[in-house]
Design a protein around this nucleic acid. Structure first.
Lengths: 366, 366
DNA sequence: CTGAAAGCGCTAACAA
DNA sequence: TTGTTAGCGCTTTCAG
């Protein structure tokens, strides 16, 4: 033994042990480092006997290749980054799952960050992922429409692109300025339109729109779809019936409670997402307002809670997991190889689907 | 060709542009690479004027430091790995959130993988994270009690430890063999005991235990707690009343439906987790069995769905997020610095808490 | 306060 | 089939 005096490598001594390197393995097996590299990467012919000796050496030394060194030497880091606002929110979790699965299928690992809704953190995380040379960085969920923010974002997109990576906008509008991004969207406005149209078809005209941060693209599109449906049917818009707010259960509960207390001027509620709907449902329950007999209720997203609520919630399904998968596909095809004719800056658009359950009924006749 | 001739860096041309490096920045600013490094790391005095010139150069060149090179040069990669079975399962999602937040607070990024319950993938992911030199690898949730698997796991733990990283067992028993791991557990058995005891106190004696893969440590501990409570109260165990199975809503629904069809021989149900409880609740609803008047129901975990069910579910709360946070703390204190006297191989144990809601009532008198 | 130079561990020509 | 060697981009002594 030539290095380290005592304790065999891998013996679990105090932290900071020098790890075995290719050089150690090579020496131990009596070959060159190139050969070691070759047996690891199985991308070059190596005599069976040699291979075995090398593998034995690796095992004995507890050798684990250093991904940093490998990446530095020119091999892709095989990493994709994903940035969401909250991991425990099913909307994001399902998209994250899609990203993770697609990444794994492509033999990559996933770097995950939560912004908790803070655009500044988002920018910082993009930077961090770029430093790690992620093959793609997926930005998930609605975004704010801030001028400076978009400029910063565009800069990051350009830097990433210059290095051969891609910024992927998943479920949010593209930032103009010819920023080199790719995107995966879903028909958010259309889903909202379908929902309100469904309500109107059932006879509702006084529809409360509840929740959704007015600054968030996701919420804006939903409200837009709602309004368009109203308009198309010739129903006048009543500002009192538009109550934007957080995408949270607490908001749905609180605002709905207030509204109910001052006498409801509506026969149906369009909650900006299922979580808000859950809160609203509880408020109605406590106020003795029956769904759907007294008031109809719809949500958006079709996350699992929609099926637990009673009555089961009518809502709009988004192909969440599929969006996540496509996000990494579109990024990896567009940026790296050009085997496929891929629209390097294309935006994929997936459909949404109205899911009718039990929370809507015609308005009560008076 | 050695350089790439045209197109300024950051111009967003076709992928594969050569990125700016410290050398480029140094040249551009008329300083040495050492100086560039110094201004980046702000860990060494640099003249204000010089600093500004360097920063300007970095900005103009769209320079983004290469984390791989940095890591290779001896700086920590600032990464923690987390391996869960499913990201969309709230049990895991909350723990993951804790890990992510603690990592972020410590200025680290999170590598996330989903095993989908496959131990082989788990081992493979540990390896990949080790290759990336993660500061810690957190293994979340129950594990199977397989001999070979544990041997493999122990080996990984040793390799990781030899390199100064730590394998963290979060919510699962330690693997013996003196494997150098750290752990964070919760009082799983105790929570189950409390639940069953609560049921017994209400007068129940025929309690159905439903769900939980019999091979999974998590499930085993819960069943053990349940049995202990029964025993303590002198209630005979009836094998018919132990119905293990998947940790899934579908299982809870299906098995409960079957059991109800053949006439329930129980007055209460202990679902191995809240998800199973949700399925069971639906089965009872469809069979016209009222909760809690006809049959009482309890779950485990206290994930959000517990509050959406009607009646609200009595269950056991686990400090999920806190476990995640502690997981990275315990790993990072034990392995790296020895400022604190940290039990390098310690296992932290957190408490659980009975949460009484509306799904339990005394059994119906006959 | 700044520069020169020696690696960190691995891969990929290029030789043999 | 195998070995030699030149980097990849950054940090960090050690000298100015």
């Amino acid at each position: 033994m030539s290095r380290q005096s005592s304790t065999a490598p891998g013996s679990g001594g105090p932290a900071g042990q020098r790890r075995a390197t290719v050089v150690d393995v090579a020496r131990h097996a009596g070959v060159s480092t190139a050969t070691v590299s070759r047996v690891m990467n199985r991308n070059y012919p190596v005599a069976a006997a040699t291979r075995e000796r090398v593998e034995a050496a690796m095992r004995e030394l507890g050798y684990v290749v250093n991904a940093h060194a490998r990446a530095l030497a020119g091999v892709s880091g095989r990493t994709v980054g994903i940035i969401v606002s909250e991991l425990i929110d099913p909307f994001y979790a399902y998209i994250a799952r899609g990203v993770e699965r697609e990444a794994t299928d492509g033999d990559r690992l996933c770097l995950v960050c939560c912004t908790q809704g803070d655009p500044q953190r988002e920018l910082a995380f993009i930077e961090l992922m770029h430093e790690r040379r992620a093959d793609a960085v997926v930005l998930v969920g609605g975004s704010v429409d801030d001028r400076d923010y978009k400029v910063e974002l565009a800069r990051r997109a350009r830097e990433l692109d210059a290095g051969g990576s891609k910024l992927v906008l998943c479920g949010r509008p593209s930032i103009g300025n010819g920023a080199p991004t790719v995107g995966v969207e879903y028909d958010n406005e259309g889903g909202a339109f379908a929902l309100t149209d469904h309500l109107i078809t059932q006879g509702h005209e006084r529809i409360l729109y509840l929740g959704g941060p007015p600054g968030l693209s996701t919420a804006k599109d939903r409200l837009a779809g709602h309004r368009r449906a109203l308009e198309l049917r010739g129903i006048a818009r009543d500002p009192e019936l538009e109550q934007p707010g957080a995408f949270s259960r607490a908001f749905g509960y609180r605002r709905m409670s207030e509204l109910l207390r001052q006498g409801p001027g509506f026969t149906a509620v369009f909650a900006a997402n299922d979580i808000v709907a859950a809160g609203a449902a509880q408020a109605m329950e406590e106020a003795g307002v029956r769904v759907p007999q007294d008031v109809s209720l719809v949500g958006y997203d079709d996350i699992p809670v929609a099926q637990e609520l009673r009555p089961r919630l009518t809502t709009v399904r988004i192909p969440l997991e599929e969006m996540g998968r496509q996000a990494v596909r579109v990024a990896l095809n567009g940026g790296d190889e050009d085997d496929w004719r891929a629209p390097t800056t294309g935006t994929l658009r997936l459909g949404t689907q109205l899911v009718v359950r039990d929370s809507v009924a015609p308005p009560q006749r008076r």
